[in-house]
Design a protein around this nucleic acid. Sequence first.
DNA 1: AATAGACCTG
DNA 2: CAGGTCTATT
Length: 680
Amino acid sequence: MNLSLTDQNMHNSSECCLEDDKPDVMLPCFRRNMYDEPLASYSSGSIISQLLRKTIHNKRALDESHFYLSSSTAADSGQEDQCSVSSKDSTVEAASPSGHVSTGASLEGEHPMTDHLQAKRARVENIIRVMAGSPNSRQHGDSERSDTDARDTREAREAYRENKRKQRLPQHQENSVGGPANRRPGSSSSDNCNTKDEECHKLKEQLHSMQRLLRQLQEKFLQVYNQEDPEQNDRDETEVAVEHDTMEESTEPRYVSTEDDFERKNSRMTAECKDRMKVVGYLVHQRESQNLQETLKHELSRAVNDCVDKVFKKVSSTGLDRSPQQHMCSSPEMQLSMGADRKSQQVGSTQEQPHAEEAAVKPRSLEYYERSEAQSPQDQTEALSLVVRKPAVTPMSSVTPTVKRPYPVHQTPFQFNYSTPLHDSQILEHLLKYGPHSNFAGLPCMPPSMDRTSPDSVDLPWDTIAMRSKVTSSHLGHHPRPSALGAVTVDNLCLPHVKIECGELQSMAERNPYIFFCLNINVNIQEGLTPSHLKKAKLMFFYTRYPSSNVLKTFFPDVKFNRCITSQLIKWFSNFREFYYIQMEKFARQAIVDGISDVKDMTVSRDSELFRALNMHYNKANDFHVPDRFLEVSEITLHEFYSAISAAKDSDPSWKKAIYKVICKLDSDVPDEFKTSSYL
DNA sequence: AATAGACCTG
DNA sequence: CAGGTCTATT
């Protein structure tokens, strides 16, 4: 999003999530922070200080312009908080940093800060200074740092935890997503690849640094506010606890059946996410410092994401014209897949022998990068995600064509294979020049055979997010899980037809998978409705033609229901019925044409042509024994149509409704076996 | 006005 | 199958 856009659209709630289509227009504040300032290292805290200055200035500016968050908004809590984050964030961010950066410095001198803010700023800056105290030690390799950092962060969290006695904060280890992709110099097959290796590595490390910084910052903030406002803890405790419970309840079942390491890792990520969720939830309630926090987080996130995204874009734009084979890096170590544990299993095989299972895992990152030419700046607006409001972790999954595996929890193997020299990237230059060490792994790599035909919502403009978020939040009362749109909570991967509702999130994740993982942001992407679900729905149709939404919820326990999913399922059954009635009418008319005079001469058996047509539609594989009751109902339906047509009732435009009324009463209970998510 | 369902279309 | 429109219902 460029500056002018920002200024012009301060009121636009979606604006914070928008990025313009001009990849080369750098966000002024970003450029300033990331590039113009020689940021000897991110760990130096200079960027943070800058941000703090900006933030504080902003807060003041907002106060002055009465553009500040209304108290009612700020007072919102609990689920509402989670659900409406996007709008709230937008409010904050729309009025924040980017637009003020240029004037920030001068204004700061003119308008003395309040003592309070000054104190706060001083404290935070001090913290950051301390944090950045040993930047170099952190910069030298993941193995070294993870010990210290993990301990630091854990301690911070422990401290926080003690203030929230009631919370069960699962222990977990720090996930360093990029960790596994350790570079092995020399393993590449060519010099070119060696160079790329190094650059790759540098970028990666840089990302880690930023990641760590952000994490630490969050936790330090936490400490500060704990000391400063201890009673607030108690106040928020209940809210947070509620959040926690809600999340617990909705997320845990999903992992029951998972078995491999990756799943366990994700469980831990869930834990961590919950943890952070609480942290953030707590922070959010600090009305006083909300702007500060939001702005800081936003800016940090943006900076990181922007940085990463642009590099990716640059890299990919030069790399995509290569042949698929060239996308593959000769050294598996260079491949960054989302899960370390998973990597070795998926890398390679996915690309070289994409059969059913691998094909099911459908990375969309290529599409993303193909599009990124035009859209890339949008892709990182998700920076917000850094705020990590969403605790629940579900492996990213995509709608898959797999039918064999009933309800697969697919991990999208977003693999980023190094494949492009990073020579001409301005961003890279900056990174390499100013960054402590650039490091990056670079390109999405996809099996050529991957199904990329499925329409998705990647093209959705970001403004639809805000639009949709309102819709969603109005229904969140029924939602089992708080949804933080602004925090990049991807509720569901919806099938294309519901993309208006939730496609943005899907595409967000699809377009920016690497960001999510690198930043250790866990996107809760519940699988959408899969072909397996469709198949199951069709079989259920043999029992119920008019399932209630409650029934649907009962029988699709592995589906996180939200508005789009529900309507999609309902639509499915609507389509089923349509086909069913069409067949009925068709065969009834045929019977009349055939001169059948008595309905009793019309029966529906398993040999019937009608049944075969129906069976072919709902039970194509013919691996399901259609209940007799369905034959009965079909026969009744056929008779109804026959009678109505015979009586010339079909002259009435709504003559079918009477039939529908009859048929809808013939629903029977769906067997309990269907309740098992792994039924198929 | 919102919703659900049928209907039509691609 | 999904998207849209139309209509009836609340």
